[in-house]
Amino acid sequence: MDIKKHIILIFFAFTCLAPSFGQASKIKQALDLFKQSKLDSAGLIIDQAIENEETKEKSSTYYYAGIIYKEKYNKQQKDDKASPARDKAIEYFNTFLKLNEDEKLVPPIKKSIDYLINTIYNDAVVLLNTETYDQSITLFEKYKKLQAYADPTKDINKINIQYNLVLGQVYSDLYDKNEENKTEFFEKTANTYLKVLQDDPENWGANYNLGIHYYNEAVNRIKALEYDVDLVTLDMLEGEYIGLFKMALPYMQKAYQMNPNRKETIIGLSGIYYSLKDYDRSDEYTEKLKKLEEEK
């Protein structure tokens, strides 16, 4: 929203709300500064109005504060993923909605809140990579909390699933690249996909990726085995590897049931059964793969 629209809205609101407060010098001062695009000063003054005994209970104070801080975010902090101005704008708009009795002003403010919350979501998505995933998670949690508050009826389950699918992949990349914290990222990857499956047991991607994840962990551990390992230790370790292959199996089976014509799942099942030394079943899936490739 450009500044002209803001000003029109502000004067409209000011006209509507003016009778509801008496001591308005701080607010007027803040609005003057806002009109001059002096957003830092406008913010400082409106904050003082919020602290002021006379104006802090007035909904209009929060209305103007929200608008000033929203503009500050748009003009100065758009690239700051942890923008304090955005947080303040949402907080003030929410307080306005709590105090306000004029229904006419509710829809535009709700739109503004929606807009700001969506920028938080977008920032969370942009930061969802192996470098900045921690910031992304913080923002996404904030987004969910704010969204639930702004509109408790909105179903964010789908977004949550989609986010966790990508987060699982980010953790998996870190697991592949990171030798020092492999165990940590192994657990994080698995737990993230399990979270997706809790919300959506029929999710093909989470089933397949979890199957692969457990399988790859077993393979990595076998690859890393020292040649000098004695047979007693090997027997114990092999038990652990078999445990992981068995953990992989139901997820890969589920992915296969959901989509029997996907090559990846057939290769996956063949590999898991091979590692479980069930050669007949492994061969069965190898044959299925051949047939599928011939049909194509």
């Binding site: 989609q162 986010y163 699918l165 990508v166 991607g205 692969i212 399988y215 290769i267 091979y274």
Partner: peptide
């Protein structure tokens, strides 16, 4: 951004080239 999310999601790569049983047998 939503499209970006969809594009980012892909299946994990499967280490099927490695013969786990051959390694175990070689240790035996």
């Amino acid at each position: 951004i939503s499209l970006f999310v969809v594009m980012l999601f892909a299946v994990l790569s499967f280490q099927n080239q490695y013969d786990t049983n051959a390694k175990i047998k070689s240790l035996f």
